[in-house]
Design a binder for these strands. Structure first.
Length: 667
RNA sequence: GCCAGCGUAGCUUCAAUCGGCAGAGCACCGCAUUCGUAAUGCGGGGGUUAAGGGUUCGACUCCCUUCGCUGGCUCCA
């Protein structure tokens, strides 16, 4: 006897073996038709799999309205895609084909190099498979038999997966659809016809099992939806994300420049971009002072010995610019991190417990030789400036200091209208030997970090093993922008190792008049100005809030007769501390307005004979249009208010399906 | 670094049929126009088609090498 509880609380009893589809049919034929899968005690299964013979289960039927249904559909579409590729090309080896945030992929090993030119015929074959609407049949078998089957099919990658990844499983499952059979945990939609709309997106290389020393496979990306409208909406959102690309906007709006003649990944901040950076720097600087940090400035290169002591040189040798070798044999390294320099300041005199916490802050420029394939606009570069600081404190102070870092981060993000973020805790992988420091130090640091995060009740916190820095555990901030894309910005890291005897041997004299070892906290909550501004460009789509806007107001004259008045107004705006420009070209006012709108200037002051006579300005708001004429002083006050409040006026909300919510499927 | 794709004027707006005269729009410069809330008209300058080599009577176009960029993978102190 099996007792089944449904989500509405009703209870059904069965004395014979039933499948979810039988229960759906019993409830109604429409439901049976719409049911794609079932969730039984929280575990997904296909509609045709038998439920237990007795006991009690809770059952939820999954229709296309269910958020989990889309992943199911996409995974099934991945099978359809693999099947189509196998029909079209010889010798295709299947690897893995999971769903991801915006769709799915399948990793394939095959002779023919796939390119977008192949997409139309693959898509046509997929459409044919979907029209045929064959069912996905689940077949379970013992691992030996499964291994033999994969061997017979020539699927050696699957054989390896059965031997290694699935070594603990007594039996495994396959899904068959016509001539196509694939090792797969499932479940799938009942038949291919459920796939309403799909599209192949791109092809890329991907290493087998994510290991760069193993062979490279071809990864074919696609996406699928229940309806064509949903697919089109998704593609529209992807377009929207592209429209905001900071690399394109950065060039159009003259914010920054990267010139191959100088070097890949080296950023030039153009005048307009530099304004944004300086405003942010000033804002952060003020916050740092308010929170008891002391600004310092330190050299951007240093003797290699320093980084050997810290461990950075040996650990990251390959991703640093090689040392500069001097005639006398001395070697200098372009600094890849600021911490050894701040440690040097700490060590420059004896420290008392009364001096702690010591918080040293520097907008520190560092250089790292990132791999060429990693470089990307401003978000991945070879020279960048971190909003760095190092806190030296006693063990008792760790909690408060760490909390202070997070509070400042929260405050700054909120000011910019970025209130959607999550925290990732990167802990050590105990099996790896890439870390420095004793196991006790690590345990202490991890426990302290986790405790503070739990106390602060941080959103969506997740512990990830193996993601720590080599000297300590870290908390990463992952911020979602207004269209839902996630950006990994800065980190806060706890460090019991650099201060240790084996490294820099830091100490302070305690109340007991004995030396003690301080704890270091590394924090760069916004990562770098390059990455942060890159993210902001995309977040605001180039339309910055007034306090950050490179050009805050543009004076434009209706005819050149009022140019003298215009120049006077512009001068008075500059004197009032506003970033003002003027458009005195012999163009019609409509053209000047259009240009200013396209250049995303927040305010336009339109001046004609009337304004000149009355000493007024006609204020045009980029977002709301003509606000009418008002005395200059009133207009200036309005803008100054908005600047002082750091108002974020433009609120765009959406999701490009590019951020969170990636499925954790290992099909 | 690896896989795949791409590289034409300042422009991530792009054209050039089979290998047959490198051409538009925007921007820029000049002249005219002096205009009231998203494009005034006319004219002009601007190119070693990423660089180098090869095939060919002839190369933007085909082949090779290098550089750069894009999408991924790996990495990310």
């Amino acid at each position: 006897m099996l007792k089944v509880t449904l989500p509405d609380g009703s209870l059904r009893e069965y004395s014979t073996r039933v499948r979810p589809i039988d229960i759906a049919t019993e409830i109604g034929p429409r439901l049976a038709k719409a049911t794609l899968a079932a969730e039984v005690d929280g575990r997904l299964m296909g509609v045709g799999e038998a439920l237990p013979a007795d006991g009690q289960v809770s059952l939820r039927l999954i229709t296309n309205k269910d958020p989990k249904a889309l992943d199911l559909l996409r995974h099934s579409c991945a099978h359809v895609m693999a099947r189509a590729v196998m029909r079209l090309f010889e010798g295709v080896q299947l690897a893995f084909g999971p769903t991801v945030a915006g769709g799915f992929y399948y990793d394939l090993q095959m002779e023919h190099p796939l390119s977008e030119a192949d997409f139309p015929k693959i898509e046509a074959e997929m459409a044919k498979i979907i029209r045929e609407n064959e069912p996905f049949e689940r077949v379970e078998m013992g691992r030996d038999k499964a291994r033999q089957l994969c061997l017979d099919l020539g699927q050696t990658l699957k054989v390896e997966h059965i031997d290694e990844g699935l070594a603990a499983e007594a039996s495994v499952s396959f899904y068959r659809q016509g001539e196509f059979i694939d090792l797969c945990r499932g479940p799938h939609v009942p038949s291919a016809g459920a796939i309403g709309a799909f599209k192949l997106l791109s092809v890329a290389g991907a290493y087998w099992k994510g290991n760069a020393s193993r062979q490279q496979l071809q990864r074919l990306y696609g996406t699928a939806f229940f309806s064509k409208q949903e697919l089109e909406e998704h593609l529209r959102q992807v377009e929207e994300a592209k429209r905001r690309d900071h690399r394109v906007l950065g060039k159009q709006l003259e914010l920054f420049l990267i010139d191959p003649a100088v070097g890949s990944g080296l950023v030039f901040w153009l005048p307009k971009g530099a304004v944004i950076r300086h405003e942010l720097e000033n804002f952060l600087y003020g916050e740092l002072i308010r929170r008891g940090y002391q600004p310092v400035n330190t050299p951007v290169i240093g003797n290699v010995h320093l980084y050997e002591t810290s461990g950075h040189y040996p650990y990251y040798k390959d991703s640093q610019f090689p040392p500069i070798e001097m005639a006398d044999g001395e070697r200098y390294l372009l600094r890849p991190m600021n911490c050894p320099h701040h440690v040097t300041i700490y060590k420059s005199k004896p420290r008392s417990y009364r001096d702690l916490p010591l918080r040293l802050a520097e907008f520190g420029t560092v250089h790292r030789f990132e791999q060429s394939g990693e470089l990307n606009g401003m978000t991945r570069v070879r020279g960048f400036t971190q909003d760095d600081a190092h806190i030296f404190c006693t063990e008792d102070q760790v909690g408060d200091e760490f909390r202070g870092c997070i509070e400042m981060t929260q405050f700054v993000l909120k000011t910019l209208g970025l209130d959607d973020y999550r925290v990732r805790l990167g802990f050590r992988d105990p099996a790896s030997d890439k870390y420095v420091g004793s196991a006790e130090n690590w345990q202490r640091a991890e426990a302290a970090l986790e405790q503070v995060c739990r106390d602060m009740n941080l959103p969506d916190m997740k512990i990830e093993r193996g993601e720590a820095a080599f000297y300590g555990p870290k908390a990463d901030f992952v911020v979602a922008d207004c269209i839902g894309r996630e950006w990994q910005l800065g980190t806060v890291q706890l460090d019991y190792n650099l201060p240790s005897k084996q490294r820099f041997a830091l100490e302070y004299i305690g109340a007991d008049n004995a030396p003690h070892q301080p704890v270091m906290i590394h924090r760069a909550p916004f990562g770098s100005f390059e990455r942060f501004v890159g993210m902001l460009i995309e977040h605001f789509a180039g339309a910055f809030p007034l306090w950050l806007a490179p050009e805050q107001v543009r004076v434009m004259v209706v005819s050149q007769k009022v140019e003298p008045y215009g120049r006077d107004v512009q001068r008075r705006l500059s004197e009032a501390g506003l970033r003002a420009s003027g458009d005195y070209r012999a163009e019609k006012i409509g053209a000047k307005i259009r240009d200013a709108q396209l250049e995303l200037v927040p305010y336009m002051f339109v001046l004609g004979g009337r304004e000149a006579e009355q000493g007024k300005v006609a204020v045009r708001d980029r977002l709301e249009g003509d606000l009418g004429a008002m005395p200059l002083a009133e207009a200036v006050e309005k803008l100054q208010n908005e600047i002082q409040q750091k108002t974020v006026r433009q609120v765009v909300k959406g999701s490009a399906g590019l951020g969170r919510g990636s499925a954790e499927n290992e099909y």
